[in-house]
Design a protein around this nucleic acid. Structure first.
Lengths: 263, 263
DNA sequence: CCCAAACCGTGTACGTCGTACACTTTGGTA
DNA sequence: TACCAAAGTGTACGACGTACACGGTTTGGG
């Protein structure tokens, strides 16, 4: 499971792979495969059977080549996953995004969420560093563009973007874990909250959680905590952006002799 | 890697494991091991060498027993990880938490963050469902208690708690990935931003990211985006709680004929 | 009192994983 | 044309989780 070897020829090569700027090599036979083909095969596998089904062997098998031939195109599995992540991220469609920063950021967050719902396995890929691929940077570009008219400085904009993606990822991972918890016990995802409540209710009856117990007794699990993931997501998003508005309002009130940010 | 078998005797047994309410069984030889001993050994291993080093074989080896004997105490590795998570979570120390909800929630978030800094491997454990262990519930209890005097309803309180833990986890995972990215390239974590900037700067010079390029040209990476994780964490936390305050203010302004929440 | 049931711990084995390494085949270039 | 980098193959190693059958130990019910 670990990486005994070095993996690749350094992060510079990984960057070339991400951006598709690999010199094909003039000598030798023309390769029948390509980085994109390998990545696409891996993505197809992940789409069909989940990330756990993506092994070098299975990917190679689906391409009708041997396992080791993949290593001619990809340094190792970790890098393959990084490539999959960027490829699956795609490019945000900002056509119908509104002009105001809040509306645009809401669209960004929702589009990102839709992406994770479409390809849940993206959330399972361990992030190995800052976003470096073109697609991930395209999302960053869209986010920064959405904030162009705000009074936030560069650091704040990036932080807010990170915060937003963090929220989208967290919420998506929670949804995923709920679904899988349901699959493991054989209960439908929606009914999990019921089981949850029963379990907790039985257990909390005689323990040292007064506040929790009070909430349970007041019917906390009649409508279980995460019954509507969409509402949780939207509420968190709204809270976050409300925080931003508060910050902007504070700033506008404080430095009103200063000119507004020039677009 | 997957779980071909059923793993355990259902989630009810896992709950018993978590709460330490396992009937020892009157017949047969007294076991030299125990669930706690196994979990502790696994945690020691994770503390020393990271979660990747925690395998059934290595845990058994550290306990001077064979691999399979572990399965007498733990249904499988997934459940072991769940147990490790709850055990590592410990119990929040609310002694020096202030009385106001905001201060208390800040302390909760910071204490949680400290926990993840102390045991980074906790963040690598894939969450398999809602919090069910006593320690995780203790954190939930503390969080709910912190909000006892607010005008939030139960659902909102839980959502806020989830949002907070999501933020702490996200930020911790980002720190972790940064550290590991540095380790992989052989660069110190602090210098990563520099490399990041160089890479992006080189790449962005001739591409289709106008806003991003503008920020880069304006010195975005002179002080790299995630140079100070602590500041990022605190800023996000503040933003979040500002959002809550805005919600509370809105609520207070709207329904002032309604009595305040009774503690 | 005794035997069978329950339980602990062991040993072996299977299928899977990532990937190192030596090899043959291929085809552009010096 | 001869060479050699590169594509693709085959084999192998050391891990992993865990199913399964077995022998040893304790204890409860008859």
């Amino acid at each position: 499971m670990g990486s005994p070897g070095t993996g690749g020829r350094g992060p510079a090569h990984t960057l070339d792979l991400l951006w598709g700027t690999v010199r094909p090599g003039r000598r030798g036979p023309r390769g029948g495969l390509s980085v994109e083909a390998v990545v696409r095969a891996a993505m197809d596998l992940a789409d069909a059977e989940g990330l756990a089904a993506v092994s070098m062997r299975r990917v190679a098998e689906s391409l009708d080549v041997t396992t080791m031939s993949l290593y001619r195109y990809v340094p190792g599995k970790d890098d393959l996953c990084d490539l999959m992540l960027d490829a699956a991220s795609g490019t945000p469609d900002t056509a119908d995004w509104p002009d105001d920063w809040r509306g645009a950021l809401e669209h960004l967050a929702r589009d990102m969420r839709a992406l994770f719902r479409r390809r849940p396995w993206v959330l399972e890929i361990p992030i190995s560093g800052p976003p470096l691929g073109p697609n991930n940077l395209a999302w960053m570009e869209a986010g920064l563009a959405a904030m162009r008219d705000t009074a936030l400085d560069t650091g704040e904009r990036i932080r807010l973007l990170m915060l937003l993606t963090g929220h989208v990822r967290s919420e998506g991972q929670r949804d995923l874990s709920m679904e899988r918890a349901g699959a493991r016990t054989g209960v439908a995802p929606r009914e999990w909250g019921r089981v949850y409540g029963e379990m907790l209710g039985r257990v909390l009856a005689d323990e040292r959680f007064p506040t929790l117990a009070r909430h349970v007794r007041e019917g906390m699990f009649d409508s279980p905590p995460n019954a509507d993931p969409e509402e949780d997501f939207e509420a968190g998003l709204a809270l976050l952006l409300d925080g931003v508005e508060a910050l902007l309002a504070r700033r506008a009130a404080a430095g009103d002799d200063e000119g507004p940010a020039t677009g």
